[in-house]
Amino acid sequence: MTTSCEQIQQKLPEYWAGIISVNEHRAVDTHLAACQACRNESAELGRLWANLDRVPVEAPGPAVRTRFYDMLDAYRSGADEKAPAAAPSWWSRWFGQPLPVFAGALAMLAVGFFAARSFYSPPVVKPETSEIAQLRGEVNSIREMLQQQSASERLKGVTFASRADKSDRDVVFALLDTVKSDPNVNVRLAAVDAFKRFGTDHAARRQLLEAIKLQESPMVQIAIIELLVDLNDQSAVKALNAMTQDDKLQKAVQERARWAVTELH
């Protein structure tokens, strides 16, 4: 039985690559020995096939890895927030970081928190006065901490803010300022997480929604979108819908906005 040229041609790439079975290899050899046209074409294209190895290709840049881990981190924290038994997402995010500065910040935070509690609770003061003083002191401390030069100090401020009275608008808007303008993406992300506690404030939620467009980081944008879903903010649907078509936003952000619209409907 004679194998047709067309049947042989289909086998040639595997033949050149050396991944063909022994029987098929023999069949190709037999055909090429008998058919000059196929022999010439196989020789010419086989050389081209081999030379494709010589076409260099660049390695991906280091930013690819960084962006991936940032994205995974942000996504995981979003997923953790949805799981009722999960730890607070800012905690898991920072606890997972290898950087000693964040471990240090957490340690200092724990020490600072307990020290602050004991400082603001002297037994000789009436309970009411003590609470007010403590709250005022904490709000002032939060404001100051959110304006520190050190990112880890600002991070501590965010953490204190997440424990503040949820009706305290000073804290709410200090957090919003952090979300909008803190130079460190990690502090902004932590501020978004902390904001969850203050989600009942409609005006603040509107500002949070507007903050999406001010962000350069798609991670923060996605974190805000996911928070709006967690807060079940139906009034955000129109703006989120517009984001799905906004070419200034990254594709991943548009997709998350699309997902959010579906979740909120």
Binding site: P60, A63, R67, F68, M71, A252, E255
Partner: peptide
């Protein structure tokens, strides 16, 4: 590079 990111997302 953007597409790699997009695929993993």
């Amino acid at each position: 590079e953007d597409l790699v990111q997009e695929v993993y997302f």
